[in-house]
Design a protein around this nucleic acid. Structure first.
Lengths: 144, 144
DNA sequence: TGACATTTTGATAATAATTATCGTTTAATA
DNA sequence: TATTAAACGATAATTATTATCAAAATGTCA
């Protein structure tokens, strides 16, 4: 059973709203993604899509991921992958992350009300720490 | 003024506790990091360290970052950089992230008490959304 | 529907980030 | 200070991603 099911017509509508052409590749990539509830890498998507379109190119996967993200059909989990980012502050704290310039600013643990889970975390997950990401635009980027 | 200042003796102590040899390169890299309050990339660290040791190799930066992270002197901001990770769930939600196998599991927005900041966010940051990362070990990885 | 303009695809080359290799240098220890 | 192990710098190799471009597919409009 697919995780987030959309019919063919639904996908065509989504494309139409965004001015995207509807190609077979695009539709299979989108369906594959909707059927994956983990958070797949481009490579993992490629492996899955290849079972339906063996001739598809990895470049096509990358191009369509970018297209989907740009048009708001998908989102990237990590806002600053591409290169490692290090931190020296080992105390509990949080982050302000700018979507545009990728700058990360620390937010003190005391500035945020303690994170509290309503229910137990699923299946024996052993919690070490919480980190809140406050996502948006920094002053400079907000000013366009 | 350095952000998080440590004397030479302090650094030697940290190394001794972890069984690391104290090299000039290591010390300069560590000092540089402690003086950067943004969250630098390896390349940015390299540029800064190079001003003091022009002959240093980028490989040495990478090797020592790894050494420092492994021994708990540093931390990586993104727990899953290295390749992009996509998500289809555009509703507000949160993540359980396993430090070991890097698996990301969604946590419903309703399962977490609303995030509340005690103070105003600094300098006109425009908040779009909050995302809580619950960081630890999944059941399988916790079982070693 | 068919012709034309535009977009997308697949193949491949190019680039960027990171890791591995290896001979030389440096640090730890006795 | 001599010995051993670890770390360094140079460089090659790998991995992830982006760019290029001719051929194929899509959208549109007469």
């Amino acid at each position: 059973m697919p995780y987030r099911s959309h019919g063919v017509e639904e996908f065509k509508k989504l494309c139409a709203e965004r001015g995207l052409s509807v190609t077979h590749q695009r539709q299979v990539i989108y369906d594959a993604l909707m059927g994956m509830r983990d958070h797949p890498s481009p490579e993992a998507i490629y492996e899955k899509v290849r079972r339906q379109i063996p001739s598809i190119s990895l470049g096509t996967i990358y191009k369509n991921i970018k297209t989907f993200v740009d048009s708001g059909l998908l989102r990237e989990v990590s806002l600053h992958h591409g290169s490692a980012r290090l931190e020296t502050n080992l105390e509990p704290h949080h982050h302000l992350v700018c979507l545009r310039c990728k700058t990360i600013v620390d937010l003190d643990d005391d500035d945020v009300e303690p994170v509290r889970l309503k229910s137990d975390v699923p299946g024996g997950f052993r919690v070490q720490r919480y980190s809140v990401e406050v996502i948006g635009l920094c002053q400079d980027c907000a000013a366009e």
